[in-house]
Design a protein around this nucleic acid. Structure first.
Length: 563
RNA sequence: UGGGACGUCGUCUAACGGUAAGACUGCAGACUCUGGAUCUGCGUAUCGGGGUUCGAAUCCCUGCGUCCCAGCCA
């Protein structure tokens, strides 16, 4: 058997099963989202696992929507989920299924269990069911309806189906064991009455199967071999097995793994929904969101996400991955593929006093030092430029190598310049513009006399600059664990008020003018940026995907900490 | 307090009775027309206590800690 996928305990189980021929040499998995929200990075882990494992062993993976709750599920979510799985790079081919495809079969199976006296119609209210269930430490009590006859149950269940009874008035329950220490086995509900429009079956049904009565059988119908799910379903496995055994049908193996947790990030559909509904973010695809739609808009590549998912591994340990690892993988990927350009995010005007007024020179710049095939481009240089405000200090601190009065630096791909003067706002004292002289002998960026400069900074010619809006993102939450809150507060108290910073006056080199939406770029020395769909003709909007590793910022922070 | 599961560097993962390894992070250095990238080096871990064994992260017992379960959600 091939062995190139990342090793993990599930893969080992599959290897064993292949060895023992448990499933006749087949590997068939499925990704089973409920269409009640957008997919997030945690789902990516499951998608990569399910599709990755099957692909490794020549198996197939189904996409199956777990749509057994008509009240929460919508077509909008179905569409976005399919789009996202495709974007991530996976293909379910013709194997698109819905749990609702099996409603008829599931109903037949329920009738079968009634006939076996393994299921009964219960008239207890939701409240009563809860009381009868007992607690973690006390056994439950049997429902007074538990011993109805097969005939009565069959009749009642049929009438539940035809819509004779109101919502919540009755349920179909499995007859298992009210004293089981596993609460899932205390006569779990199989069917409930819900008169609601289903996104696919419309008003055809008014009774809907519970997850437990639908999932295993759906796996069975689809001949799934390894049904991979998260840890919280561990307690459900006995029930999963029980239904399949009672029904005497094909029995897949459920295997549980640890759900992804990320620092500074919330991965709960409910809480993400809250952020969207309360307007804390601009939508499901806000670039600060951990949804795959948001991450995509932020500029992440599918490759980076897949690499991340492979790197984090799979186990049963409840852990939390550091966000830094995710960021590492985008940088690693984008470093190889993102074309470089120069963009000034916070512009500071620079006049090169000894440079001819109307002269413009085209400077040759490398598109990607990591990829020779990316070639070069021309960047216009002229007398008035913009540089980054951060690249000039009137009083340079220790270890600051950039421009300051009297100091010479290199303008990337252009000339050495020396700062000769500073113009300040008379009232505020703010630096308005600076003056420099250039050394014509250093054209292209090298001095014939071999002298060195400590620093190279980026620039944009003022007359040729393209205006753009740049959106910088920081963690959505201030705390590593956003769920850790003081008494009476909820996770929204941990929201980072500075998670979005908009820079409306960025200046880009002209080659960026026609950058298409979604294109990814490295702005040299600044980070990776992606063109946002909010861009309009003549008005580009960029999202910062990730910053570059910033040694100076680190030094500065450390020095400030000392002071 | 019933049941289920899990405890290995700061974080995540490996080691399947035989030298505790890798990645990320951090720190130091080299190189550099991006304080980027790259390269080199450094650091820190088997939850505690007993046992079995020539030998234990691994097997057994015990204690401790963490997570999940009392939806007619999934």
């Amino acid at each position: 058997m091939s062995a190139d996928g990342p090793s993990n305990f599930i893969r080992d189980i599959i290897l064993d099963d292949l060895q023992s021929n448990k499933f006749g040499g087949r590997v068939q998995t499925r990704f089973p989202p409920e269409p009640n929200g957008y997919l997030h990075i945690g789902h990516a882990k499951s998608i990569c696992l399910n599709f990755g494992l099957a692909a490794e062993f020549g198996g197939k993976t189904n996409l199956r929507f777990d749509d057994t709750n008509p009240e929460k599920e919508e077509t909008e979510y179905v569409d976005s989920i399919m789009e996202t799985v495709k974007w991530l790079g996976f293909d379910w081919e013709d194997r698109l299924f819905y749990a609702s495809d099996y409603f008829g079969q599931l109903y037949e199976w329920a009738v079968q269990l009634i006939r076996k006296e393994k299921a009964y119609v219960c008239d207890l209210t939701a409240d009563q069911v809860r009381q009868y269930r007992g607690t973690l430490t006390e056994p439950g009590r049997e429902s007074p309806y538990r011993h109805r006859s097969v005939e009565e149950n069959t009749d009642l269940f049929a009438r539940m189906r035809t819509g004779e009874f109101p919502d919540g008035s009755r349920t179909l329950r499995a007859k298992i064991d009210m004293a089981s220490p596993n609460l899932n086995l205390r006569d779990p509900v199989m069917y409930r009455i819900v008169h609601a429009e289903h996104h696919r079956t419309g008003a055809q049904w008014c009774i809907y199967p519970m997850y437990d009565f639908a999932h295993g059988q759906s796996d069975s119908v689809e001949r799934i071999t390894h049904s991979i799910c998260t840890l919280e379903f561990e307690d459900h496995r006995p029930l999963y097995d029980w239904y399949l055994e009672q029904l005497g049908i094909y029995h897949p193996q459920q295997i549980e793994f640890d759900r992804l947790n990320l620092t500074y990030t919330l991965l709960s559909k409910r809480k993400l929904l809250t952020l969207v509904e309360q307007g804390r973010v601009s939508g499901w695809d806000d670039p600060r969101m951990p949804t795959l739609a948001g991450i995509k808009r932020r500029g992440y590549t599918p490759e980076a996400i897949r690499n991340f998912c492979n790197a984090i591994g799979v186990s049963k340990t409840n852990g939390t991955i550091e966000l830094a690892l995710l960021e590492h993988h985008v940088r690693e990927d984008l470093n190889k593929r993102a074309p470089r350009s120069m963009a000034v995010l916070r512009p500071l005007r620079v006049v090169i006093d000894n440079y001819p007024e109307r002269q413009v020179e085209e400077m040759e710049a490398v598109n990607n030092p990591e990829d020779a095939a990316a070639g070069t481009r021309q960047v216009p240089f002229s007398r008035v430029l913009y540089i980054e405000q951060d690249d000039f200090r009137e009083d340079p601190p220790k270890q600051y190598y950039r421009l300051s009065p009297g100091r010479e630096v290199r303008l990337r791909y252009a000339y050495f310049v020396t700062c000769t003067g500073v113009v300040k706002d008379e009232k505020t004292g703010e630096v308005r513009e600076i003056h420099c002289t250039y050394d014509p002998a250093t054209r292209g960026g090298n001095a014939p006399d071999g002298r060195k400069v400590k620093s190279t900074i980026h620039w944009v010619s003022a007359a040729h600059a393209v205006d753009a809006e740049v959106r910088l993102y920081d963690n959505l939450f201030l705390k590593e664990n956003p769920n850790e809150t003081a008494e009476g507060e909820d996770f929204t108290a941990n929201l980072n008020p500075q998670s979005l910073e908009v820079l409306p006056q960025a200046k880009l080199e002209p080659s960026l003018a026609g950058a298409p939406v979604g294109s990814r770029h490295q702005f040299e020395r600044m980070g990776y940026f992606c063109v946002d769909p909010d861009s309009a003709a003549g008005r580009l909007v960029f999202n910062r995907t990730a910053g570059l590793r910033d040694t100076w910022a680190r030094i500065e922070k450390r020095e400030k900490g000392k002071a």
